[in-house]
Simulated assay, not measured.
Amino acid sequence: MSRRPDFFILGAPKCGTTALSEYLRQHERVFVSTPKEPHYFCEDFDYYYAPGRRSLSHYLRLYDGAGDDHLAVGEASVWYLYSQTAAREIMRFDPRARVIVMVRNPVELVPSLHSQMSYMLDEREPDVEAAWRLQAARARGESLPATVRVPEFLQYGEAAKLGAQLRRVYDHVPADQVKVLVFDDLRADTGAVYRDTLDFLGVPDDGRTDFPRVNENKVHQRAAVARFTQRPPSALVAVAKGVKRVARVERLGVLDRVRRSNRQVARRPEISPEFAEELKDHFRDDVRDLGELIGRDLSSWTD
């Protein structure tokens, strides 16, 4: 019988979750699922699992490779924090589960998330400020890209309210089972955050000192290739599923390789000072709440 996950990185998106999960994956005593973001406990978001296809048996198969030598077994689904149900369902699955939450200045998070949604083809408005102003219409079901999978992900003003989301986590998870990491700290001293996380998970330090950058801002080199790899034709998906069933594997990796070849790291355009001030005003109360929850003065984010 496979191991069950006992730790979960809940997000938020664009807060260093991919980097941290990859560093943990490379520790010989830690097992991280592949894919790292199954989003099984997001009952309100059909993201990884198609409607009606969510099953515990499929989810647990993601941990078939975990063994007794692994001191921590987990996953990192970045939309768990935004989800209304995930924290509650994780506690129902394992009341002793350890939970990691990663947070970031929302004034930085919004443009970074917009860039990621654009890269994934969920967002088709290229300008972040214009996309911000579409939120009200999109909440009414208007002006939504045909390619968006979860419309709520384009509600940037709610997706980046991490104080409210963390408070919901504490409504369901005992405080001593929650570890909150701040992206500023990960950026300033990655090794210290990594060792602190290992300590929280009860895993010994492996002496790692090299922490290459992971999941930098990226764009597609060729739009046609992006459309094919991010939204492959249904016939191709059906064939791939059949091959995976026969081969008894979760992923073939072919599209992943094509995606990587079409990927280019690019600097994200700066937002205007006026829009930055608008974002600060929007998130000021939530940032204050987040700071109170984690016992840290975060006022510099919105001053």
Score class of each variant (00 low, 15 high):
Val150Phe: 01
Arg4Pro: 11
Val249Pro: 10
Ala136Cys: 02
Met117Glu: 13
Ala19His: 09
Pro38His: 05
Ala87Asp: 04
Gly242Asn: 11
Ala160Val: 03
Pro233His: 03
Asp171His: 12
Val169Gln: 04
Pro95Thr: 04
Arg61Ser: 12
Leu134Val: 06
Ile271Gly: 01
Arg53Tyr: 07
Ala226Leu: 00
Ala86Trp: 09
Val103Phe: 05
Ala188Arg: 15
Pro212Arg: 03
Ala164Ser: 12
Arg288Gln: 11
Arg288Thr: 14
Val101Arg: 03
Pro273Arg: 01
Phe283Trp: 10
His172Cys: 04
Arg98Tyr: 03
Leu298Trp: 02
Arg222Ala: 03
Ile100Pro: 11
Glu152Ile: 05
Leu144Thr: 04
Ala188Met: 06
Asn105Pro: 14
Pro111Trp: 02
Arg227Pro: 00
Ile271Ala: 05
His27Gln: 04
Asp69Glu: 13
Asp176Leu: 08
Arg96Tyr: 12
Gly207Pro: 02
Ala247Val: 02
Asp210Arg: 05
Ala159Thr: 07
His220Gln: 00
His172Pro: 01
Asp69Thr: 08
Ala72Ser: 01
Arg267Val: 11
Asp6Phe: 07
Gln116Leu: 08
Thr147Gly: 10
Arg88Asn: 13
Ala72Met: 02
Leu162Asp: 06
Val265Gln: 12
Asp46Ala: 15
Leu60Pro: 00
His70Pro: 04
Asp184Leu: 11
Leu166Lys: 00
Arg61Thr: 14
Thr85Leu: 13
Gln135Thr: 14
Leu201Ser: 04
Glu277Gln: 11
Arg259His: 12
Val237Phe: 11
His220Asn: 00
Ala160His: 07
Ser33Thr: 09
Pro151Ala: 02
Arg227Asp: 09
His282Ala: 08
Pro13Phe: 08
Gly74Phe: 10
Arg53Lys: 11
Val258His: 15
Lys218Ile: 00
Val237Gln: 07
Asp171Tyr: 08
Val265Gly: 09
Leu198Lys: 01
Arg88Leu: 12
Asp285Phe: 06
Arg29Pro: 03
Glu28Asp: 13
Asp44Ala: 14
Asp303Ser: 12
Asp122Pro: 03
Val107Glu: 12
Ala12Leu: 01
Trp79Met: 13
Ala235Ile: 05
Lys36Met: 08
Phe200Val: 01
Ala238Asp: 05
Asp210Ser: 10
Arg167Glu: 10
Gln135Glu: 13
Ser57Tyr: 01
Gly11Asp: 06
Val148Gln: 10
Val169Asp: 02
Thr197Gln: 07
Ala66Lys: 07
Val258Pro: 15
Leu81Phe: 10
Gly157Gln: 10
Asn217Asp: 12
Arg248Glu: 10
Ala139Gly: 13
Ala224Tyr: 04
Val110His: 00
Asp205Val: 04
Leu290Tyr: 10
Leu109Phe: 14
Gln116Ala: 13
Val178Leu: 02
Ala192Ile: 10
Asp199Asn: 12
Phe200Met: 06
Arg213Glu: 15
Val225Cys: 00
Glu37Val: 04
Leu56Tyr: 00
Glu274His: 09
Ala235Cys: 11
Ala76Arg: 03
Phe153Asp: 12
Arg133Phe: 12
Tyr59Asn: 06
Gln221Thr: 07
Leu62Phe: 15
Leu166His: 01
Val178Gly: 05
Thr34Glu: 15
Arg29Asn: 09
Asp297Ala: 00
Phe93His: 07
Glu108Asn: 15
Val30Ala: 02
Lys280Gln: 15
Gly11His: 05
Pro204Asn: 03
Asp289Ile: 15
Asp44Tyr: 14
Leu81Cys: 06
Trp79Gly: 02
Arg168Thr: 09
